[in-house]
Amino acid sequence: MIQLENIHRYFQVGEQTVHALNGIDLKIDAGEYVSVMGPSGSGKSTLLNIIALLDRPSSGRYLLNCRDVTELDDNTLANIRRDNIGFVFQFFHLIPRLTAAENIEMPMILAGIDPRERRHRVSQALAAVGLSDRAKHRPDQLSGGQRQRVAIARATIMRPGVLLADEPTGNLDRASGISIMQLLEELNRRNMTLIVITHDRELGSRASRSLQMLDGEIVL
């Protein structure tokens, strides 16, 4: 489903060229549960951004669902991202003025889905993350764990094939962190490809496949 072939990514920082990704070859099948670990600056986030189509590789080829997405224009990428990739962030990134339900609804609004269908799917998603009674609450009225649940509901509302989680528990206490991981793994069991970036060894080891990164390369 995800196939990276000899991906390089350079950044120009002043006079220096930083080699963030250095010849990444990676194949992830549908329904896999992969964790990506490594120290800061090892290229984890760059890899995730490239997989999420937020960033373009400097060289190499990226096939998503057997389609070469390396050379597509911004609008096409935005649409592919919307329909195929769900994103969960360390800092939740909910829109503060919108309620939980409206935050979850946002990807469907961007996709131009009919409002009745939207309402139906939002209430289903809220139920799935156990927040039906918080639909009208704004993010600042929710706990960290609840916010991340809203973010997960939003990430999955378009029924994407891939769910990318960047330090999903990094901003949560241990108990909420574990319950968030359980929720993500539950989604993975229903055949959603799950890629988790984490510093946390224990968390990383829960995945069926664990990748270790160092200096822009996958070392394990």
């Binding site: 937020l54 911004d74 649409n79 329909d83 994103f87 990134h93 946002m106 961007l110 996709a111 939003r154």
Partner: peptide
Amino acid sequence: GLLKALGATRVQ
């Protein structure tokens, strides 16, 4: 940034 990550196009 979030809207873009969620698939908003430039035009939108």
